[in-house]
Measured scan of single mutants.
Amino acid sequence: DTFTFTLDGIEVRLHGASEELIKTIEELLKRDIRWEELEKWIREWEK
């Protein structure tokens, strides 16, 4: 599955994202998160 969203005018596609990761990103997007914050968060998630 591919999860697609737009952040700061950039279309982002995550391939093979888990349901948990998708739900977490959706929550972060509701908080009007900035790209830099999401990028940092995703790097931490990957560890």
Rank of each mutant, 00 (worst) to 15 (best):
R43Y: 08
W45N: 06
E20G: 09
E20D: 10
W45Y: 13
I25M: 02
S18R: 04
L21R: 03
T4K: 07
W45K: 01
E46R: 02
D1Q: 15
E39W: 10
I33K: 03
F3R: 01
L21Y: 05
R43L: 10
R43K: 14
L38C: 02
E27A: 10
I10A: 05
I42S: 01
D32I: 06
H15E: 15
L21H: 05
E19T: 14
L7T: 02
L21G: 01
K40W: 09
E26H: 11
E36C: 07
D1W: 09
H15A: 07
E36K: 12
K40P: 12
E44V: 03
W35T: 03
E46S: 04
R34I: 09
E37H: 07
T24D: 11
D32C: 11
H15P: 13
E26N: 13
S18M: 03
W35Y: 12
I42F: 06
L29P: 00
H15Y: 13
K23T: 09
R34D: 08
D8C: 04
E36V: 14
E44Y: 04
E39Y: 09
D32E: 13
T2M: 09
R31T: 15
F3T: 02
E46M: 10
E44A: 05
E37Y: 07
E26C: 04
E44G: 02
E44C: 04
T24R: 14
E44Q: 04
F3W: 12
R31L: 10
T4S: 12
L21M: 15
D32F: 07
L7F: 13
R31S: 13
G16P: 11
W41Y: 14
A17I: 13
K30L: 14
E46N: 11
R13G: 05
L14S: 00
L29I: 13
K47L: 15
E39H: 09
L21P: 00
V12T: 03
W41N: 04
E19M: 14
I10Q: 11
D1T: 13
E19P: 14
T4R: 05
K40N: 10
T6W: 14
T24I: 13
I10H: 15
E20C: 06
G16K: 07
L7H: 09
I10D: 02
E44N: 05
E20Y: 11
K23M: 13
R34S: 15
K30I: 09
H15M: 09
E27H: 08
L29W: 02
I33W: 07
E11K: 05
D8H: 06
T24S: 15
E11H: 06
E19D: 11
F5G: 01
D32S: 11
L14I: 14
K23H: 11
K40Y: 10
T6A: 04
E44S: 03
E36N: 11
R34M: 09
T24L: 15
W35M: 08
W41K: 09
E36D: 14
